Structures are given as C-alpha cells and as structure tokens.
Simulated scan of single mutants.
Amino acid sequence: MNITHFVENLNRGGLERMVIDLVKAQHRQGDKVQVVCLFERGSLAGELDRLSIPVHACGKKTGLDLRALACARQFIAGHYTEVLHTHNAVAHYQAVLASAGMGIRQVVNTRHGMGGANRKGGRREWLFRRALKATDAVVAVCEAARRDAVRRGVAPARKTCVVPNGIVVEGFDVASDAMHERLTNLLKIPDATRIIGTVGRLNWAKDQASLIRAFRLVRHKRPNTALVLIGDGELRETLRACAYDEGVAGCVHFLGDRDDVRELLQGLDLFVLPSITEGYSMALLEACATGLPIVATDVGGNAEIVSDGATGRIVPACDPPALAEAMLGLLHESQRASRLGRAARDWVEAHGSLDAMAARYGRLYFGDWEAVT
C-alpha cells in the first residue's frame, strides 16, 4: 500500500513521535511510506532518512502559498498515493486542497489533541470542516476528544472514530536505582534526593507553572526533592522566573530538548503531567512503560490512560494544592507508589502498544470501521 503522511513538520513533539513510530511500523510491514511536511522537515526527520523513508518539505510561507501547494501536490502524486493520512487541522485542509481531483482511495485525518485553541468559529476549524467533504475518516486519539469534536460540530459523528496512540513498549526499561544515581550525578544533587519529573513542551497547555507552584508546597514538607522539566519552548524564561518567585529556583532543573528521554525517565521517582489540555499523551504512555508512579490532571484522555488509584493519581487541572497533595502522598507511601508503577507498566503492555495502534490504522485504511470502533 502506498501511504503518504502529511504533517506540519517533524520537530520534536508527541504528534511527531507518533507519526515517526507509525511510519516505521508500516515500513517494516512492507508498505511504501513517505512523509510530506507542509513547512520544514524538522529535527526528527533524520530517523526516517536512516531507513531511506522519504521526508519532503514544502517550505510553506505565511498565507496562501500556491508554490507550496504545487510542491505538495507533486509529492503526493509522485508517490502514487493510495492512502493520504494527515495530522491535525492545518495539515489536513492544505493536503486536501493540494490533492484535489486525484481520486485518492482513502483520506484519513488524525486530530492529536482536544482542539481547545481553535473553537468552532475559528478560521482553521472552518477550513477543516470544508475539507471534510473529501475526507473518509476523522480519528480522535481518545474518546474524550472524539465526543468533544462531535459536540462542537468540528466533525460529524458518522465520520469519527478513536485510535489511541501507541508506543514501542519493549524499548523502555523500568526505573532503577542505577539510573536514579546517574540522574542525580547529572544534576549534581545528593543521591538520596527524590526526583519528580515531567516531559513536554514548555507552553501554556502543559501548565508547568502549576507544577512549580505545587513543588514549592512539596519542598516545604519534603526538602530532599528536586523537580526536572524535560523539554523546551517559548515559556522557558517565564517558568524560570516562576521558580525564582516561588523560592525553588535552586532545585528546579530545566534540561531542554533531549535525545535520552527514556534514560532520564528511568531515573525519576515520580512522573507528573500538569496539563490544562491534552489529547492522548505520549509522555504519559512512556511514563507508564517506565513503571513510574504518575500524577496527571483530569483533562482530555489522561484518565483513559491513568486510572485513579489503580495506575496513578488523577487531580483537577490548575490546582497546585491538589497536585502537591497527590505528589506528597506517593512520595510518602513508597510501596503504594511502586504498586501503581507496576500496574501502569502492565496496562501499557496490554493497551498502549505501537502494534495495536498500527493494526487499527491498517484496518481503517481499508474502510473496516467496525474493527476500529
């Protein structure tokens, strides 16, 4: 099968990680796959280059860019595309416009988040809805996102389904004392320090500011703790200032974008996802695969991954005291935290694998809706 994935770019992020892993799985099973990037190729494109999987960039400029559309059309047509799989709203309507009249057998769009930034009246959503006439399926990554998209009129119920994200679980080792020691050495902190960590872009949606404020409360009762933020973004300096204002700047560590996230996760004692909005978080799946106790906010698909009291803790968003209380509880009850971490690993092995996700998309590409839903 000739498959074209159409994205904005392949810069580091959960969406991009999912696309690359899915492309690799499809390549292994014999499909002819390419990725077309609306803007630049992105920092992760090299992973596909090493497998000789084509990654093309259209170099789109601001506004209507006919040259970029023509470029995209050439890439889609030259691949003899049978399945056009787009990711999120902008990539979707641009790809549908670029491929108009080609008669592609199956056009599938995956919406990777909750779409909170683009309400029903927004221009992007209006263009997305117009493109649905040439779309066979709109995939949400969690049931909460599917219901929200239907409720807001973003997509009709008859065209929506859910395919949860998946990861290569076998690639993750569980947290260990040896990796904890490695991380404390990296941070230059005492070996006995309990390390709380999060992974994600430093932006408004991930709400690391609430985590920093909650961490101040944790430090008041557990002075031997440190907070690690893995990822980068436009709020880096704002969050540094927040840590300073809260009086915890000396024990909040900004590690930036990293290529060794899996190893860093293995050194944590506790994983926290404080997001205001989420789809189906790849970071949460990775924390589950590492066997970490987890605290996550009750937004998007988080509660579809973390079962409160069974595989972690779920707390309200934008509530630093509640976040701090949950973190302190797991830091205090180490045996309970270990049980939750083991249960999270068992859950992701059964429900969050890349193979399960790839198989669902494969059935959807052939129009087998019943097998997907």
Score class of each variant (00 low, 15 high):
N2W: 01
V7C: 13
I20S: 02
H27P: 00
Q29Y: 02
V36M: 06
L38W: 14
F39S: 10
E40F: 00
S52I: 00
I53A: 03
Y80S: 14
T81F: 08
H85F: 12
H92F: 11
A95I: 09
L97M: 13
M102T: 01
R105T: 02
V108L: 11
T110D: 10
G113E: 02
R124F: 06
R124H: 12
L127Q: 05
F128D: 03
R129V: 11
R130E: 05
A137Y: 14
V139F: 10
A145K: 08
R146S: 09
A149K: 05
R151G: 05
V154S: 13
G171I: 06
D177T: 10
M179S: 14
E181V: 08
T184V: 13
Q208P: 01
Q208T: 06
S210D: 13
A214H: 03
F215P: 04
L217F: 01
N224A: 14
T225A: 14
D232G: 11
R240V: 15
D245P: 00
H253G: 03
H253Q: 12
R258M: 06
D260V: 14
L270E: 05
I276D: 04
L284V: 15
L285S: 07
L292K: 07
L292I: 12
I294L: 13
V295K: 04
T297V: 05
I314L: 10
C318K: 15
G329T: 09
G329A: 12
S338A: 15
L340G: 02
V348I: 14
L354G: 03
F366E: 15
G367N: 08
G367L: 09
E370T: 07
A371Q: 10
